[in-house]
Design a protein around this nucleic acid. Structure first.
Length: 315
DNA sequence: AACCCTCGCAACCGCTCACGA
DNA sequence: GTCGTGAGCGGTTGCGAGGGT
């Protein structure tokens, strides 16, 4: 009895992904879309388990990922959201476009925790350490902490409380959206949520979009997708520990690679509503996908450079 | 130069939950 | 109700980079 393992682990590769494997996975997903992760490794010719493929795609290869360190603003968002949501990393990540739960969790554990402790704040309770340093005290339940936080809203939290209230409200009304159980329903809800959040952000004077490093498309369409030399992005295209660290900068589709028809049915929801912009200002054709539903509409997701072959780059 | 240690982060593990067939 | 699958989560591991001795 018991659950079947997600894959037959015999003969499967573990550890860091190679450029070749990434290539295969990207190729497969862009051609076939995301479906049945268990079948992906076999169909894509990978000696990995489906879960590993899924994680690799979600945490690293997805084209809509932002790379590099979290900005001050994002960090503050994480802290505030953590105060509201606790360790629900995926929920937190959903408020930070282009960031993954794993990335946020790692950043929390390696940077923010230390930072908060340095500031005399208990990262668990978000209260001054002086009042919570007694580690003999049992840890407060998250609901209790949340209640306390909501009783004393701080500037940024006012906005977050509003956002989270909207989510709660939407989550509590399944009867009004009978299709909410299916993916399309969820997508529409997500779109509506972001639309609402955008409205709040636009109407809330305490939210300053200047804090968000928006990049205009013309700024990011650069020949050969030369990566930024800034410290935050210099290691962003690949992990510093990855032997194939320049893969995303150097990797090109094979000359005979046929770009798939961007059939909405084949693309995940994240892609389905993207605009394709063609920019002829540069000496080669480049296309930028921009997510119109994102609160960071100007943030580029993918750049393709077409001269001799397609080039794929993540920003 | 060699060794050791710490750090950061990608990746993994094992589990639960949600959902559809 | 059961089963298969994907998603999500918390915790942990592995390994390269970099700094110190």
């Amino acid at each position: 009895m018991g659950r079947q393992p997600c894959c037959d682990k015999v003969g499967l590769k573990k550890g860091p992904w190679t450029a070749e494997e990434d290539k295969k996975l990207i190729n497969f997903i862009l051609t076939n879309g995301q479906c049945c992760w268990r079948a992906v490794p076999k169909l894509a010719g990978l000696l990995r388990c489906g879960k590993s493929c899924r994680l690799r795609w979600i945490n690293y290869l997805r084209p809509d990922l932002k790379r590099g360190l979290l900005s001050e603003y994002e960090e503050q968002m994480v802290i505030d959201l953590h105060a509201q949501l606790g360790n629900r990393w995926s929920k937190i990540a959903s408020h930070l476009p282009g960031r993954t739960d794993n990335e946020i969790k790692n950043h929390w554990n390696t940077h923010i925790k230390k930072k908060l402790r340095k500031m005399g704040i208990d990262p668990l309770t978000h209260k001054p350490l002086a009042t919570t340093t007694d580690q003999q005290q049992p840890q407060k339940p998250q609901m209790e902490i949340q209640q306390e936080v909501q009783e004393q809203p701080q500037p940024q939290e006012c906005l977050l409380t509003e956002i989270l209230d909207i989510e709660d409200h939407q989550n509590k009304e399944p009867e009004k959206s009978p299709q909410s159980s299916n993916r399309e329903g969820n997508r529409l809800e997500e779109e509506h949520k972001f639309e609402t959040v955008d409205n709040i952000m636009n109407n809330n004077s305490s939210f300053c979009t200047d804090d968000v490093p928006l990049i205009e498309p013309h700024e990011i369409i650069v020949p050969n997708c030369v990566p930024s030399t800034s410290s935050s992005s210099s290691s962003s295209n690949y992990s510093s520990s990855d032997h194939s660290s320049n893969f995303l900068e150097e990797w090109q589709f094979p000359a005979d690679f046929e770009w798939p028809n961007i059939n909405i049915d084949l693309w995940d929801d994240d892609f389905s509503s993207w605009d394709l912009l063609i920019n002829d200002d540069v000496d080669r054709k480049a296309a930028t996908f921009v997510d119109p539903n994102s609160s960071l509409t100007q943030f580029p997701r993918m750049v393709f450079d077409h001269q001799d072959s397609w080039k794929y780059g993540l920003l």
